[in-house]
Amino acid sequence: MMLKLSKDKIGELFQKLASSRTLYLPIDNNGQVNFGQWTPDAVVRLDQLKTVKSAKDFFFPQTENIVAFKRQGKDISIIENRDQNEPFVVFGVRGCDARSLDILDKVFLCDPVDSFYKARRENGVIVSMACAEPEETCFCGVFGIDAAEPQGDVTIRIIGDNLYWDGKTEKGKALGESVKDLLVQATGQDLEIIKKQDERSREILSMLPLGDLSLDGFEESALLEKFNSPLWKELSQACVGCGTCTYVCPTCQCYDIQDFDTGHGIQRFRCWDSCMYSDFTLMAHGNSRKSQMERFRQRFMHKLIYYPANNDGVYSCVGCGRCVAKCPISMNIAKVIRALGVSVSV
């Protein structure tokens, strides 16, 4: 059932949502927009298409404590200090980020289940938001995402003076219940408006310059051909080996677990890792990928070949275009797909 709310009541909606759980949404911090906790004086920026970091943080945070140890004499005590039980809503998640959670689910919810991630997935409600004005860096359509009607527990559209609220899952409907005083039912006329808007959005989405990227040839059977391609050298030569592309990516999923000596105990934590870094998968014998070419190749082979080979052909890129916009030297997955897409004859 489609519900609606007048846009000038949006502050009340946030207030209400935030009264029963933590509400995260795109917030402006001196010009940069990232998901952050809502407060009455936060500068909410739902108009921002892409936050710098994705919505991934709320399910798989950049750093999180796992457990702590304390030693007294001969005793070692274990202190549970995980903090993944807060109920929360992430509001204004775009279609690309909403889909990225499916990709993370396949990694973290398969056996052995990652209990931290699972708890956050259970406690979190996703309110996704339709895109009416995509950017040229967007290519979600290449991965079969319909940005005009993204997945999520609730999907909202902002059209004219109204916010349309479409509760989709059980969780989403329950969230709608909790704010039902503010929502009214959409009329037949509203549904027409929505339909028109969706059509318009889809038309623009179909014109995106990266929309013609072709994934033909990125399949398991081409693994060795792609792996051995001479093009990697050329593609990777300017890469400075920073972690920007991996840290802004909604689907990058690698992490590291380390012990931190706090001086009076040990804090075990996990943090995002980046295959672009020299200490990625560092072992006693050294790093298995010694050159930046090998590290660079890993990132794209993982997204376009290894992951789909293990997950029924699903690619682990959602075409959000963040790496396209943020790489310091403008190298990115779109250029890689372009270069390697057509089968290189051997």
């Binding site: 911090n29 990232n34 710098v52 400075v240 920073c242 972690g243 920007t244 840290y247 310091p328």
Partner: peptide, 16 residues
């Protein structure tokens, strides 16, 4: 503190 609170430790500044 405000400016640096946004840092994601991507190390792009250092590497460039």
């Amino acid at each position: 503190r405000g400016e640096l609170s946004r840092c994601i430790r991507c190390n792009a500044c250092r590497n460039a």
